[in-house]
Amino acid sequence: MTNSKTKHKLTIPKFKQIKKENNKITMVTAYDYPSAILAEEAGVDMILVGDSLGNVVLGYDSTLPVTIDDMVYHTRSVIRGAQHTFVVADMPFMTYHGSIDQTLRHVARLMQEGQAHAVKMEGGTEICLAVDACVKAGVPVLGHIGLTPQSVHQLGGYRIQGKETEDAKRLLEDAKALERAGAFAVVLELVTEEVAAYISEQISIPTIGIGAGRGVDGQVLVFHDVVKYASPYRDKKFVKTYADIGAQIREGISQYVQEVKGGVFPGPEHVFTAEDTVVESLYGAGKAERKAEQVK
């Protein structure tokens, strides 16, 4: 376990240095205070407060209903838990596709109210003006191409990207455009391994993959996927789970229910007792003794 108090938060210049040194960047999502603490203690380099919280935490079928208020609230919670880790907040659906002024107002909320260190935007060449404006305003931007969940209806579902030549060329063009616009790194989601590796070679900023194979500069997974914190849990080809917390939580709560119904909990070791004089004042001397026998 990493000592979070001695951990040095990554900075934008350090990200490029990590790529040059051929090291790997580790990133997980987190959506609240306790998961942020655990992620930081585990030693991750970055935490993403993803709009995937819509699916994972809020119970929506997609990320589309997630609002800027949701993102501010959850980002602020994560920041309180991970004070020594670089935290990126997702820009939710349709908060960066209007005017530049509207985009910057939404970004300002995530940075000022949410206290994020950077924001993430989905898209390629079509969002580069927004990326450029944010970077010029002093806001670090993490790009996101490949499978972009906010555009899932336009993409025709959760499909693997980079299977065809034209698609591969488009992804490379998008990555280079984001680099020129000033993005400090780019997420590649559900992209074929060969295409993701080639993109990583062609740009100077780090690539962080999720379902993008082994040739990228880092990996990101959802906290709840890493530890199977869900019920029922749906296995995913691109995910490796490292614990089964969901089963342990369910079993623990089930045992609690059984013990309460069976009169096992609380036991003598879980209760607080009053002085005899207090009990006598409530029940009377004789009744106090009988009451004590009843609760044994």
Rank of each mutant, 00 (worst) to 15 (best):
A30V: 10
A243R: 13
A212I: 06
Y233M: 06
A175R: 00
P13C: 10
A133M: 05
S52E: 06
I199L: 04
P13G: 14
E275R: 13
K9N: 11
Y73E: 09
I208C: 04
G156W: 10
A197V: 08
I79G: 02
A39H: 00
H8W: 04
N3C: 07
P268N: 09
I160L: 12
A108S: 12
I249V: 15
V191S: 07
H97N: 10
M46I: 11
E179I: 00
H84C: 10
H97D: 08
V28W: 01
K291G: 06
V72R: 06
G162Q: 02
A196F: 03
D70G: 11
V186W: 02
V191L: 06
M1T: 09
T103A: 09
M27K: 04
T207C: 06
E122C: 00
K20M: 13
V28R: 03
H153G: 11
F15R: 01
K296G: 09
G123V: 02
K163H: 08
V28T: 11
R76D: 15
V141G: 02
Y33I: 06
A197Q: 11
E193A: 14
Y158A: 14
G81Q: 06
S151F: 12
Q258L: 14
Q150Y: 05
Y229K: 10
N23M: 14
K240V: 07
Q150L: 06
Q161A: 12
K261Y: 09
K120M: 04
A133F: 00
P65E: 11
S35L: 13
G262M: 15
A175H: 01
F272C: 08
R109K: 12
V135T: 00
A116E: 00
Y60K: 04
N22L: 14
V220H: 04
G114I: 00
I12W: 04
G124Q: 06
H144Y: 02
S4K: 14
S99D: 07
V260W: 14
D217W: 02
K287W: 09
K228I: 06
T63R: 05
G267M: 12
P268S: 12
A285N: 11
Y198Q: 15
V119I: 15
D61E: 15
G59S: 14
V191P: 03
L178F: 07
A130T: 11
D225L: 01
G246F: 10
A196K: 05
